[in-house]
Simulated assay, not measured.
Amino acid sequence: MQLSPVVTLPHRLGTRAAAVWPGVAVCVVIAAVATVAGHFVPILGAAVPAIVIGVVITLIRRPAERLRPGIAYSSKFLLQCAVVLLGAQLSLGSIARVGLESLPVMLSSLAVCLAGMWIIGRALRIEPRLRTLIGVGTGICGASAIAAVAPVIGAASSEIAYAVSTIFLFNVLAVVIFPAVGHLLSMDPHTFGLFAGTAVNDTSSVVATASVFSAAALGYAVVVKLVRTLMIIPITVTLAAVEAHRSASSGMSLRKVGTLVPWFLIGFLVVAVVNSLGVIPSGAQDFLVQASIFLIAVALAAIGLSTDVAALRRAGWRPLLLGAILWILVAVTSLLVIWATGGLA
């Protein structure tokens, strides 16, 4: 009898695969279309078109019942797998080189953003999960941070969709405005790379912003942004602890303590360490990074397909205002700390 779970495992896996593959296939097709769109319009990336296509399809016709298990699987498990693969972009060497210079800017802007999220979000009467998603998306790294935090706090699809769309809007504005600010302040490429890497969120938008300023600013901006991705870990673990405390009816058991760290964050760290050791060939590293980007698009397509559009309408203008205020706070804080540490003349 003890072996029965092992004996029946292939059957259970087959049953599960049969249940989820139709919905996963639909999400993969949407992600493929979104990836092509992102190739022609790089500032979009694949994430935003994927979620928009999913929402538009939902407005026209709700997905059939047989697609829902695969959509749910894509929006949760595949999203977590994407976070794991994000670790392939980082190495301990790059963290050590960039961390010392960029850490004061990153920590200051993140602290101001999270404080603003809590104070201003409460003042605007924004639902806690939505303001948390907008806060971590603005303060850390856009869709990647939202992807990591959403399952921990139990965010609804409509909240994820609103947060991703809000972050994207201000990323577009950053591409237009930030290079002009950099030239106005007579920044050199290195300084602007630090500014763009800490004040812009998604990688595609960091690349676009730094490229508009100068090709020399691009490399450093991307590395700063990737190091900034590490802030996902302490923030997600802290939120997991808060959620566990909030839902606990009694004291914290050893089992509860062990579940505070989501499995996908452990996977993220393992992949980053393995990459630091040089075990992953450069070709495989590129593949893993692209796979992560594609899986995020698959997951966001699923989130778009399961979005409650009426809930988006009910959210109104307040979350957008919160996103605008936090975006300004992060940018201003980054500039002030760069100036205070001698980065600006």
Rank of each mutant, 00 (worst) to 15 (best):
A180L: 06
A241F: 13
M1S: 14
R246E: 10
W339Q: 06
R97D: 00
G70L: 15
S276K: 02
V28S: 15
G93K: 01
G304L: 15
A31D: 13
V242N: 11
F294D: 08
G323V: 00
V24G: 09
P63F: 14
L305W: 15
F268E: 00
L295N: 08
T333N: 10
N171C: 04
R125Q: 06
A115P: 10
W317S: 06
L295K: 08
G142W: 07
L329S: 05
A180P: 02
S108R: 09
A310L: 07
V274K: 00
Q80T: 08
V206H: 11
A291C: 12
V298C: 13
A143V: 14
F264Y: 11
L260P: 10
R97H: 02
S75A: 13
I266Q: 05
T229S: 09
A18P: 08
P10I: 02
I293C: 13
G54F: 12
I120T: 04
I134V: 02
S204W: 14
A82S: 11
N275V: 02
S94L: 00
I51W: 12
K225G: 05
Y73D: 07
V279F: 08
R129W: 08
M117D: 06
V112Y: 11
G45A: 12
L329C: 09
P262L: 09
E101T: 14
I232V: 11
L312W: 06
V84G: 06
T166E: 00
I119R: 05
A96N: 02
I71F: 15
K225M: 06
L320G: 00
S158Y: 02
V337G: 10
L305K: 15
I235W: 10
G258E: 01
G87R: 03
A19T: 05
V223K: 06
T229D: 13
V242E: 09
V105Y: 11
I328P: 05
G139K: 10
W118C: 09
D202S: 12
R228H: 08
T138D: 09
